[in-house]
Design a protein around this nucleic acid. Structure first.
Lengths: 159, 159
DNA sequence: CATGAATATTTCAGGCTTGAAGGAATTGCA
DNA sequence: TGCAATTCCTTCAAGCCTGAAATATTCATG
């Protein structure tokens, strides 16, 4: 079909591959560190934190499908995570008035309080883990990473 | 205890948080794309590809524990992935002469051939997905990412 | 040599993730 | 109105991943 039929093997291709492997290694390393801290400090997980963060930015609640769009994760996945958050009392489901298929998911007051604490601590962790990066480097890297974006998300560049 | 007791909230802290979120988003996006292609094109997965790549770089084989060190994943995880690769015939376990606890894992000839094909295609995919990055940008980003490394790995900077 | 410590691996429970299939409700349109 | 297509969500099987416990073997030391 395309270029894929024969070896690529240019120096640039190798550089890009190295870049990708480095990106993967750095991200996985930081993620593992944050995951462990989240577990030890809060008995929680990054996926749960992500869901709570999305809900915190939408005080009126989000439908399951909106949640899965925002987080870019499958529908079934969101069902499971929300189930656990409901069991923990940090999130609640409500009926949507005009549509009996849909669910509106919201943080409970306890969930909101817990999230505030987690978010504060999480930011401090990231700040410390990226302690070697100054403002100029951060904005430079941020720009560089913009070039790597696979596909633009549905709702604009930043949500 | 440390800084974590009160809010951080400097502009730099927010910049670092934004950088981390972007890193996560870019990496997850690319990984999802590669995962899907690996599934459709080869009926395989990234974790299996990672194991085969590690074994391809060690023709004499690796012990289970060495494999989990190199890949930085848990022992039990490697057990499961290798089980599946053995079932597919791409990898074989062998006894270590002097130590009846250990296993030496190697690519089979079929595994080696399959991996060569996968690696070639995978490099082309990455090359295309990172098509907007030229050599100078790649090396700049690579250097910038070096600052984000959480902890140095056991066996040096590059293996 | 015996035996306790260390090492190599597997097993397990719990959770995340996907893609596919299924059920229920709504919508569009003839 | 009736009914097909669509939308919203859940369920499911399969796989990935971790941390902890269990097994088996080797090592070290008295």
């Amino acid at each position: 079909m395309t270029v894929l039929d024969r070896p690529v093997d240019t120096a640039l291709s190798k550089d890009r591959l190295r870049l990708w492997l480095k990106l993967l290694k750095v991200t996985r390393g930081l993620e593992a560190e944050l995951r462990e801290r989240m577990r030890l400090e809060f008995g929680s997980t990054l996926p749960r934190f992500d869901v709570m963060a999305a809900l915190a930015r939408h005080p009126d609640g989000l439908r399951m499908s909106a949640l899965s769009d925002v987080l870019r994760v499958s529908n079934g996945n969101v069902t499971g995570i929300v189930d656990r958050l409901v069991a923990e009392g940090q999130v609640a489901r409500a009926q949507v008035p005009g549509d009996r298929r849909a669910q509106l998911v919201r943080l409970t007051p306890e969930g909101r309080a817990e999230f505030a604490q987690m978010a504060r601590t999480h930011e401090a962790w990231v700040n410390a883990l990226l302690g070697d990066v100054d403002a100029a480097q951060a904005s430079c890297l941020l720009g560089g990473l913009g070039r790597l974006e696979a596909r633009p998300e549905p709702g604009g560049e930043c949500e």
